[in-house]
């Protein structure tokens, strides 16, 4: 059975989740056991190394944005802690009236 987290390119600092990961799951990152503390869905990203604000995120070997918050190895990397270097992403809350 393949690993739950896959590395797309050797230079990447994030891994991609291949099957849903429940909190408390022990995953393998670069040969070491790392406990995943958050639920991670298929297609989502996990930090391969400890990440700092301003770090460029590499996926497919290409830059896909920058970190905005500290995130430990094994942490979920998504809109709460990283952003585009081009155009901001929006969510469904972008319209439909103020929450």
């Amino acid at each position: 059975m393949p690993e739950a987290l896959i590395l797309l390119h050797p230079t990447d600092n994030v891994l991609v989740c291949r099957e849903t990961i429940a909190p408390g799951t022990v995953a393998t990152i670069d040969g070491e056991a790392v406990t995943i503390t958050q639920p991670i869905e298929v297609g989502h990203k996990v930090a391969r190394v400890d990440l700092r604000p301003g770090d460029k995120i590499l996926k497919y070997g290409a830059p896909i944005g920058s970190m905005t918050k500290d995130t430990p190895r094994g942490g979920h990397v998504h809109m709460h802690n990283m952003q585009s270097d081009y155009i901001p992403s929006h969510t469904r809350n972008a319209s439909g009236g103020a929450a």
Partner: peptide, 9 residues
């Protein structure tokens, strides 16, 4: 975004 993509790039 719900499917795991964070940014345009």
């Amino acid at each position: 975004a719900e499917g795991g993509l964070t940014t345009q790039e």
